[in-house]
């Protein structure tokens, strides 16, 4: 738990500052929207956290979001594929992409950066190919399906028009709880953390490291696919050229903010969720607070990520030197 103190501190400070600077920030509507955005980005960030824990990287997330996010309405609306079949295709495709990444990385020993960089280029290109660069969307149809993206659940005593918990939040909750259990309570989670720190030692201890790494890439691609579905269900309209552009970087940034080390072996799910929330609050703050010029958005986000990582490192150093001292006594 110590690992998330740094990021939790930064998040609290930014949250309180924003609330002070903008009276609109704490309104029910704004909170509801923030929860929604955090949910969407949180899911893909949790996915990439698994890969980062194995000391890998996945740059193809944004393009998978594009492929799945444009592919689903394309299948349903343009190709008039029945809903269950469309969902089956989308799920299989996501898992398959992760499998191919994992196999190329472990069995052919290709570098994750290279494999997923090619994925980044390919999936968007493929999407632009089969959609003919046309905007994809559900129009006025599939409103039941779209409830998963835009629906809200009422809080007792609050009118739903004022505030409701967005449905994707429950998905995030589910994903986060399952991911936490997997990472902390199962032997496979332990294997992932161990091989992320030292793959060789893990292999010498009889762990099937290849299989665990492949699993991590499958989880990541699956979460990106789920993210793609949610982004399109929420936004309703998507251009293959732009949907999901740079989202891998937001996901990686959130995971790193949340305490995942790109060197591998470290990370907590709750940290990643807080990291995602911090990014979203920042972007929200820049729009809501009048005196912050909106075009310096990236500068502000970059600076806060850096501050978060530095805070995290300082906390780690302090606790490390304490521990070192303790063991020498």
């Amino acid at each position: 738990m110590k690992k998330i103190y740094g990021i939790l501190g930064v998040f609290t400070v930014v949250f309180i500052l924003t609330a002070i600077m903008s009276p609109s920030f704490l309104t029910p509507y704004n909170m509801e929207r923030l929860i929604l955005r955090t949910s969407l980005f949180g899911i893909i960030s949790i996915g990439v956290a698994f890969v980062i824990i194995t000391s890998g990287i996945d740059l193809s997330i944004g393009s998978i979001i594009c492929l799945i996010g444009c592919g689903l309405p394309w299948l349903l609306v343009k190709m008039t594929v029945p809903l269950p079949l469309a969902i089956l295709i989308v799920v299989t495709l996501s898992l398959l992409i992760g499998l191919v990444h994992g196999v190329l990385i472990t069995k052919l020993k290709l570098q994750p950066f290279v494999v997923t960089l090619c994925g980044l280029l390919m999936y968007r290109g493929i999407t632009r190919g089969f959609t003919g660069d046309q905007t994809q969307g559900f129009g006025k149809f599939f409103s039941e399906l779209r409830w998963i993206g835009v629906g809200k659940v009422a809080v007792p005593g609050v009118p739903i028009d004022t505030f409701g918990i967005p449905v994707p939040f429950f998905l995030l909750l589910m994903v986060a709880i399952l991911a936490s259990i997997f990472l902390n309570r199962t032997i496979y989670g332990r294997y992932l953390l161990a091989l992320g720190c030292n793959e060789q030692a893990a292999r010498y201890s009889g762990i099937n490291t290849d299989r665990m790494i492949i699993l991590a890439y499958i989880i990541c691609a699956a979460m990106a696919g789920l993210g793609g579905v949610l982004f399109i269900l929420d936004g309703n309209s998507a251009q293959p050229v732009v949907l999901g552009n740079f989202y891998e970087l937001y996901a990686i940034a959130a995971a790193v903010l949340g305490g995942c080390s790109l060197r591998g072996g470290q990370g907590t799910i709750i940290g990643v969720v807080i990291g995602t929330a911090l990014m979203q609050v920042l972007r929200n703050m820049i729009t809501l607070v009048d005196w912050i010029p909106t075009h310096i958005e990236y500068a502000v986000i970059g600076a806060v990520i850096l501050a978060g990582v530095v805070a995290d490192e300082v906390v780690k150093r302090i606790s490390a030197s304490r521990r070192a001292a303790a063991s020498r006594l």
Binding site: C197, Q200, Y204, Q266
Partner: peptide
């Protein structure tokens, strides 16, 4: 250190 232990654990 390389093959026997996960130092950070």
């Amino acid at each position: 250190k390389q093959q026997g232990l996960v130092l950070e654990m």
